[in-house]
């Protein structure tokens, strides 16, 4: 699902320069670049906090820079997410910040950060990476579904009537039908990960995953995307039905003419034979 760059050394070059670790962070802080579907980069800032045995709720008891570190991480994610958004869609989704029992997790579609004790940090990073991959997959499917939906209205007449003019866009309709199938398949395979029931007793990872799903309304988005994909699928399925019927009707017409020609030929031959037989007697 997700791949780290050190697993795919060439991916980093294609995905742009590897970001630097912001200054002033504790030793051991790093930025990991993950590759999310469909090939998008996701930069994850990992900040291990100093005291693994400190009271995880005790922000005030922990080193006072814990709050400052969280602020810094949030600023880094926000700035990075805004710069990515400016270079692509122009719309930046507000980062989601989740304080979680002494840990701190920030997520935006292209960047994320985790703060936590060294014993927990890998668990948090893994969960955030897994969530980011799911979210990216859903985001991609949402985008593909939206594109399909934009063409549905202009293509819908072909679901009612198919003629020689529409025959020209047959392959395009077929491609869109296949795209609708692919989007539906993608959403169906994503379903179990999106609608996973809460685990009890919970683990830190399950709590983080649950909060991330909840805060990003993943289940609602999945449901909406599924409804939209179903709608597009139904329209293009009907188009496919009409196209197939049109093709069959055309083939039938040719066959009918062939039968007529054969019958005429047969009658002609019979007539010729009868005339020959009549003249010989």
């Amino acid at each position: 699902m997700i791949a780290r760059d050190h697993d795919q050394p060439h991916a980093a070059d294609a995905l742009g320069p590897h970001p630097e670790v912001p200054g002033g962070l504790p030793a051991g802080s790093m930025v990991r670049r993950l590759t999310l579907p469909p090939g998008r980069p996701f930069d994850l800032l990992v900040i291990p906090t100093a005291d693994p045995t400190a009271d995880p709720t005790a922000d005030k008891a922990q080193p006072t820079n814990q709050a400052a570190l969280a602020e810094q991480a949030q600023r880094w994610v926000r700035a990075a997410a805004e710069s990515v958004a400016a270079s692509s869609t122009g719309i930046a989704a507000a980062p989601v910040a989740i304080p979680l029992y002494g840990c701190y997790v920030i997520w935006a579609p292209s960047h994320g950060a985790v703060l936590g004790s060294p014993t927990r940090i890998e668990q948090l990073a893994g969960t955030l990476g897994e969530f980011a991959a799911r979210e990216a997959e859903l985001r991609d499917l949402e985008g593909r579904g939206d594109k399909l939906l934009a063409t549905v209205e202009s293509d819908a007449p072909a679901a009612f009537e198919f003629d020689d003019r529409t025959q020209a866009i047959r392959s395009r309709l077929a491609a869109r039908f296949l795209e609708a199938v692919a989007v539906r398949r993608g959403l169906a395979s994503l379903g179990p990960a999106v609608h996973v029931p809460p685990i009890h007793p919970p683990t830190l990872a399950s709590q983080l995953a649950e909060r991330l799903r909840d805060r990003t309304r993943l289940a609602e988005r999945h449901e909406l995307a599924s409804d939209r994909a179903d709608f597009s699928f139904q329209v293009y399925e009907a188009c496919g039905q009409r196209a197939a019927e049109f093709g069959i009707a055309r083939r039938q017409l040719g066959l009918e003419w062939a039968i007529v020609v054969i019958l005429v030929a047969q009658l002609t031959l019979m007539l010729v034979e009868m005339l020959r037989f009549g003249s010989s007697t």
């Binding site: 009271d55 995880p56 709720t57 029992y101 002494g102 009890h200 007793p201 919970p202 830190l204 990872a205």
Partner: peptide, 27 residues
């Protein structure tokens, strides 16, 4: 015992893997 337990990981960290197993068994 002064330790905040919010999940199985906290329980294990505070009282060891046996406590984690025990809670799962009780659950």
């Amino acid at each position: 015992a002064g330790r905040p337990i919010a999940n199985l990981d906290d329980l294990q960290e505070a009282f060891g893997p046996g406590a984690r197993r025990d809670l799962i068994d009780f659950d």
